[in-house]
Each structure stands twice: as structure tokens, then as C-alpha cells.
Design a protein around this nucleic acid. Structure first.
Lengths: 346, 346
DNA sequence: CTGTTAGCGCATTCAC
DNA sequence: GTGAATGCGCTAACAG
């Protein structure tokens, strides 16, 4: 009567050898029955599975990984767990990975290259066969591929080595957003962009410039504001921008955080959207549609980005010789109430 | 010239034996030098660390875990990675864990007991010494503790076994929110609550009832709407609630998702907040302050919840004999523009 | 179909 | 201080 719960605590964990003994077979047969690889008689299998169940057997992932020199874990590193964009991205990745029987291990790096590197080391230590990341520094991907770990970059490219990636056409998104403002008659359009060396931000900047060239509108470089991460002062700088004598009549905030900050500053200054100033955001986060007026945004297919990244990783795991692929998804300009013609000159 | 990069690919991973050979010591000494436990001469240590560095050594976590029968990984399971509440919770947990040199492994379970159980099995397989979870089903914690894994529940209690936990005083939060509405003169206050067996929802329901008793206001049970997860029909039901003849004059939405849905329905119906109907939410997510009028909410100290949970786990890992502790944090009613007196009867 | 053997990489005895 | 020996739990030959 005392052998059912197997281990209450203190007791050793149940191993294959244990269930083999109970079922009267060898450990190898138990292994074959449990893992489902190799021949096992129906009879033995039944006894083994039953024993495993009764004893509460849980395979030891470490032993398995040690033996096979690879695990079923895919590492995922995102910049900010608290940002919905990354949360949704991670959720979509996990979903796709799970369907292929891989396990996602998620880490946040707070946009710090050091933390990213530390996370990546953990994945190396875990012998993860692949890693999906929204890259922050350019050392991580090199380190990974030097160790034979497959890397997929999402949202932006940064790797010095050739690797797969999925991102959106940032240039086009920014171009359309800027053109939308220029078309409405704005001649002083500010750009709020993160101070990074990411391709995403470079693309958005380029799209902004391109739109100006296309529309033949001269561009005042002072309207380009590069905001560093974790900048406690970001809102002050945005405020300063909006209150100068030759303030812009429209602002394009090139990510969801900057859009939120800009929006708050606009509100704090008592400016009306779009009468006093127009505002366009990037990344369609829920609040953007809920505020009034709604925010005109460049919407990204976030979940699709995640699914594609996962599929790319699975494909490469399946065939390491595949040519590196960079997929580019299309963003969509969603026009809402925060944009309109510039105010009449006073 | 070809020995520097150590392994480009194909090459075996570097092991302790490799760096021992290079440094001219035994593997044991290498182990001591790398792990920093045990006597190693300064000289040998230097050679070993240098070799490890040059060869790009990465410790094999599986081998280590297999040997030590425990890992530095703490599992975290949350209900919905796409929900900011859980994202911020996870970020806070990770931060605290990292400071104690533990590694967070994060999983989402989509509020599905099956997925939760699967995730927990993964953690068992990884020999994680502890797991922090926002519980969905009540099997998981039992399974974990039966295997000697420390469990901390956050946000709600569900475990059939005694375990540590951190949550807020849901009853009080709901009571204050409801009292706020009753005080304003509302006599028909609806409750939107998730159809779960979670203590958080039970507490919120109880607080809602309590406020009615305290105010001596009879409660119409038909005003209590229990909404199942993933209910595609939730907004229809809320709409139906708001358009009956004896519709409520105020709605208390007991979580951030329901608050968002209620808010959308109110907008879609063209109702004005708070003139036509008052609305109170739970969990202070960013949009609630950004919409106009701002949403009156019961705010929870989300990050603090995460930090406490992690600390509780660390404390128990440190001293397994500790008495189980359930910490209760206080929510705060934040009054904004979405609540006011009921409309004058027509 | 099944059991025996061996070894993955590491940390821990225990001698020296 | 250091090295040789051992075993963690599992799976992949291999021989029966």
C-alpha cells in the first residue's frame, strides 16, 4: 500500500531503470518504449507505460540532452517582455514551435547587449539547437553560429554572419507614413526614432528621407530626433521639439514606445490632434485604436512575424544546408483621426 | 594558424577535458578552476581560465545538472504572454531571479490547464528546483510538489497543497470599486467576471457582493455576468447586458481584458462615459489612462507582485523548512473620468 | 524483438 | 594542491 505515490519527496527521482525493473525488462527496452523509437513488443510496451505512469516517471531532459548532444529547446531573446509587441511576438513563436514539438525558452534582455550575450550563453549551455532573437548587439549571432547554433533574427537584422531573418519593409512603412503627412500639406514633419544601429530604425529613417525626396520637400535635419533607450529625458526632448518657434506640424514616431511618449507630451501640452499637430505611430498596439482620436499608424503583422521566424528556424533545423532566407513582410498604413492637414499659419 | 577559433562548426564542442589538456592539468582540476569550488593553484587556475577563454568553452548545463541533480533554472508559467499584466509580471520575476543567479524559463499556457500541465512537465524534466506560476488548473502544483519542486503561486491561489503565494487583496479591491459606484448613486451595478475557479475572481465577486451588503443595496443576480475564456461571444453578451430594458447604470469589469471588451462595447453602442454608463476596470494597463475619459480602475502593484514571488521562491529554496507564506498586497482604487453619478431616469 | 555494453561531460569522492 | 576513478540517466550500437 505504500508503493503507489512513488516519491513524496526526499525519494530519488524515478528513472528508466526503475520502471524497467517493475515491468521486468531491461532499461534499453524501457527507453524504446518510452521514447517510441525502436522495436518493442506490444505486451512489453504496455507493461512499461503502465509502470511509468504508476511510478510518475518524468524523463530526465539533462541525461537525454547529454547523450544526444542536442535538446528540443529553442531559445528566444526579445528586447522587452513588458512591451506588447514583443509579448505577442513571443506568443506566436511559442505556438508554432510547440506544434513542431519544440520547447520555447524565453528571455528578455532589456535592450542591453550584455544581457543579450548572457542569455545567449545560457542557450549555448543548454545545447539549444537554435535561437530566435530580436537582436540588440552584433556579437550574439556570431557567437551562436560559431558554435553551430542556428540563428533567426526577427524584426531587424544585425548579424555580421549570414543568417535567416524575418522583418517588415520598414522603409516602405516609414515612406508611406511620411508621404501621408506630406500629402496632407505638412512641410515640417519631425521624426522620432530610436538611437540604435538597428536596420529597423535605419530603414524607417531612410523611408522618411525618401518620402521627402519623392515629394520634393526639403528636409530640416533638426527635425530628426534620435532618442536613446531608457532615456528618462525623452519626453522633455519631445516637448522641446513641439514648443520651439518653428515647431513641426506633424510628428512621425517610429516605434510604439516613442508614439506613446509623443502622445503623452501632446496631451500634456494641451495640443489637439490633429488640429494643432498630426501624429503617426508605428506598431499597432491596442491603445492606438482606443484613444480619441485614434492614432494613424504603420501596422505590422506581429503574430505573422513570429510564426514566420519559427518556421524559418524549423526549416533550417531540418535542412542546415538551405540558403539563408530573409523574408520581408509588408506593413500597412492605417489612417485614423490623429492626422489631418496642418494648422493654418497664424 | 588554424587552432584559434576552436570550432567553426562540425567540430565537437569544447569540454573540460579539452581545456585541461591544453593547460596541462587533469579534468578535475579544470572543473575546480572553472566552477570556482575547491583548491586550485593560482598558476593552474590562470592557465585553465586562459585556455577556456581561447577555446571558447561553454559549460554543458546538462552534464552539470545530471551530476548535481538540480539546475539553476526557475520555471515561470503565465496565462497569456500577450497580456501586458503577465508580461510585466514576468519581467519583474526575471530581474529578481537573475540577481540571485538563477535563470528564468518562461512559458505561456493560454489559460489552458493542459498546456499548463505540459509546461510543468517540461520543468520537471529540466529538474528545475522551483516554479512560479499564475495557476490555471489545480493539478500542476500538486504534481510539482509531489516531485519535490518548490511552487510559488502569483496573482491567485489554486493549489490543493500548501504553498507560498503572493496576491492582492481582490476582495478589498472589488469592494472599493463597487462601493465607489454605489456611493455615486448607482443602484444597478453589473459585474463582469471571468468564469474561473480562481481565488482572484472569487474574491472579486465576493467584494462586489460585500459592497452591496455594506451599502444595503439589493443585488440583482442577473447583473453578474461570468465570461468564459476565449469566449468569442463575450462582446455580444456585454452588449446584450447593456441594452436590456433594465440595463445597469454602471459596470465593474473584473480584469483588464473584460475592461477592454466592455469599453469597446460601450463605444460601439455610442454610449458616453460616464453620462450614460459608468465603467470601472481592474489592473491598471497603460491604455486605461490614455483613453478619454480615463478609466477608473483598481490598480495592482504588478511589478511588486513579481518581485515578491521571486523572493519567496528564493527564500524557500534557501530554507525548505520555512513555513508557507502567503503575502497579500494592497490594490489601489484610481478614480478617473469613466465613473460618475447615474443618468437621471428618463 | 530484447539485453548487454558503453559513453555523453561533469563534479565529486578519495588517495596521493 | 592535484589526479584517477566513479556514476548521474539515458540512448545508440551491437549481438543475440
Amino acid at each position: 500500500m505504500a508503493s503507489e505515490p512513488a516519491l513524496t519527496d526526499g525519494g530519488r527521482a524515478v528513472t528508466l531503470a526503475d520502471i524497467a525493473r517493475v515491468a521486468g525488462t531491461s532499461a534499453s527496452t524501457a527507453s524504446r518504449a518510452i521514447s517510441g523509437k525502436g522495436y518493442v513488443s506490444a505486451d512489453a510496451r504496455a507493461r512499461l507505460l503502465d509502470a511509468a505512469d504508476r511510478l510518475g516517471y518524468v524523463p530526465n531532459a539533462s541525461a537525454r540532452t547529454l547523450k544526444q548532444k542536442t535538446s528540443r529547446v529553442v531559445g528566444v531573446v526579445v528586447s522587452d517582455l513588458g512591451n506588447q509587441f514583443y509579448g505577442r511576438l513571443a506568443a506566436a513563436i511559442e505556438q508554432t514551435l510547440r506544434e513542431a514539438n519544440y520547447q520555447m525558452v524565453l528571455l528578455g534582455d532589456n535592450s542591453e547587449p550584455d544581457e543579450e550575450l548572457a542569455g545567449v550563453r545560457t542557450f549555448l549551455a543548454m545545447r539549444a539547437p537554435g535561437v530566435i532573437m530580436t537582436p540588440v548587439g552584433d556579437d550574439a549571432s556570431g557567437l551562436l553560429s560559431r558554435h553551430g547554433v542556428v540563428v533567426v533574427e526577427v524584426d531587424r537584422r544585425l548579424a555580421s554572419v549570414a543568417c535567416d531573418g524575418v522583418m517588415i519593409d520598414n522603409e516602405r512603412g516609414a515612406r508611406e507614413a511620411t508621404a501621408h503627412l506630406l500629402d496632407a500639406g505638412h512641410r515640417r514633419v519631425a521624426l522620432l526614432v530610436a538611437a540604435t544601429n538597428w536596420t529597423s530604425d535605419a530603414g524607417r529613417l531612410e523611408g522618411y528621407r525618401q518620402a521627402h525626396r519623392d515629394a520634393n520637400v526639403p528636409l530640416d535635419e533638426r527635425l530628426i530626433v534620435r532618442v536613446p533607450f531608457h532615456d528618462r529625458d525623452a519626453e522633455h526632448r519631445i516637448g522641446a521639439l513641439l514648443t520651439t518657434d518653428d515647431a513641426p506640424t506633424a510628428v512621425f514616431a517610429a516605434n510604439n514606445l516613442l508614439a506613446e511618449q509623443a502622445w503623452r507630451v501632446v496631451r500634456a501640452l494641451g495640443l489637439r490632434l490633429p488640429d494643432d499637430v498630426s501624429l503617426v505611430g508605428f506598431d499597432d498596439v491596442a491603445w492606438m485604436e482606443m484613444v480619441s482620436p485614434g492614432l494613424t499608424v504603420v501596422a505590422q503583422p506581429t503574430e505573422e512575424l513570429g510564426r514566420r521566424a519559427a518556421r524559418l528556424l524549423l526549416a533550417r533545423l531540418d535542412d542546415p544546408a538551405r540558403l539563408p532566407t530573409v523574408e520581408r513582410l509588408e506593413p500597412t498604413l492605417v489612417v485614423r483621426g490623429s492626422t489631418g492637414p496642418p494648422p493654418a499659419p497664424s
